[in-house]
Nucleic acid binder design. Structure first.
Lengths: 254, 254
DNA sequence: CAGTGGTCTAGACCACGCG
DNA sequence: GCGTGGTCTAGACCACTGG
């Protein structure tokens, strides 16, 4: 009765599709699962129901569920292990290193640098901060600075700005840890899903030069990055200034 | 007779798989098609046989061919148009702009800059050039310099090094055009399939400062890139120095 | 051993582009 | 109308994991 013949079921769904501008079944499945990640129904590290269970629940075939899941695996939102199941991705050290940290040693060595917080304050955003984080008038931000070290040598200065709305009490209870994305996820339920980085070459300011113990005017790589959560809203604006004499930024193309 | 039952055909193939360390059918199909691209059996712009024809030729199902083709579409080697067919990708202006050129205006505008060749010579490679291009001892290179202009304002200085073996007579017959990748493809049958970029911040040398009409020591973004062809061998080493005061390098993450 | 994801097949219908 | 790729289904067997 539920699904007597393929033909009638298809037609029924297609009528819905027209309302939603030709959304396919696997896109619907994708959106349902995505929404459950946004709503924290399934949390990072959780195992999802098997393909067969999902297919039964959503009244589609296993192949349709599979296509939706594989699409999300390609976006790094999920990962799969043959013989075990499908899991929600976590912001582990390894993921931070390979997905969201592009600075490596001149020889290609990948290390996530240690960090020290310099200052932290809650403020009304500057016009630029408000624009980058797409905030409404009057919404507050948390802004802080930190230095990052490779092998105890200070190399990067970061200025990080967060919408206070999503990070209540940030920095007041405890020192934010080195892996911020993991901290956002564990303490605030916010998963970073993608980011766009803008790079320029700039000169070290007098202040930066003092902090990093380098000459004023030394060329530095500026990485200007807005990170977004699962629903696409921006949740972090970070500007990093990096001394690239012993390190480099890497990017694959094609 | 050819394929009487699914079971026996599967077993036969699986024996071959064990020899090749468990290569799947769609991977074999992928490799066959990839090799035909390398061998220029199907050239850029060509339309491939339909999925059904390929499936019949290779003795697999349409779904297996589809998976192989879709994997190659994800690598930008092919593209598909519903109702028409599957095509071999070309290095068009548009592809160069979105896939292999990451410099945009401060407002995000994408333009491919014009170029002027400064000098061009055939030489024995420096040790660094030999290493980057993975050349054997004694193999020659073509090295040339060019300036690139946005709106007639010189902004980028490039040093480009090519293995002479793959580019006989390069630069001697005619001035290489602005879109080099397209030129490599049309004139030498070499398709660039991927590239790795290494970025640093450096200071403008006296020579660069003169050529670009900027101050010596101005911070410049250095883009060090090795481009590889379909079989993975390196065919171009390019170092670009870019004045990023009015432009920026962009990169998507996640 | 049972259960999971991974591969492969066969066949249906749809959306699209073209003649 | 026909052929293309795109979606969807159903069912088979494989490879892997863990009890």
């Amino acid at each position: 009765m539920k699904q007597k013949s393929m033909h009638s079921a298809d037609k029924e769904i297609r009528i819905n599709d027209r309302k939603k501008l030709t959304q396919t079944k696997y896109q619907k499945v994708d959106n349902i699962i995505r929404q459950r990640l946004i709503d924290n129904v399934w949390k990072p590290g959780d195992i999802l129901p098997s393909e067969i269970q999902l297919a039964a629940e959503l009244n589609v075939s296993q192949g349709t569920v599979r296509k939706a899941l594989n699409d999300m695996v390609a976006e790094h939102l999920l990962f799969r292990q043959q013989g075990i199941g499908t899991f929600v991705s976590e912001h582990t050290e390894r993921r931070a290193l390979f997905l969201y940290f592009s600075i490596v040693g001149n020889d290609g060595t990948r290390i996530l640098p240690e960090s020290t917080i310099l200052s932290c304050e809650e403020k009304l955003p500057s016009p630029l901060e408000q624009a980058r984080l797409e905030l409404n008038d009057g919404e507050m931000v948390v802004r802080f600075h930190r230095i990052r070290y490779f092998d105890n040598i200070s190399t990067i200065i970061e200025t990080i700005c967060l919408p206070l709305e999503h990070f209540p009490g940030f920095g007041s209870e405890m020192e934010p840890p080195n892996n911020l994305f993991r901290f956002y996820q564990l303490s605030y339920g916010i998963t970073i899903a993608k980011a766009e980085e803008h790079l320029k070459a700039v000169s070290a300011s007098a202040e930066e030069a003092t902090i990093l113990n380098i000459d004023e005017g030394t060329p530095m790589l500026e990485i200007d990055r807005v990170a977004r959560m699962l629903d696409g809203r921006p949740v972090e604006w970070r500007v990093s200034h990096c001394d690239t004499r012993n390190y480099k930024y890497i990017s694959e193309r094609g």
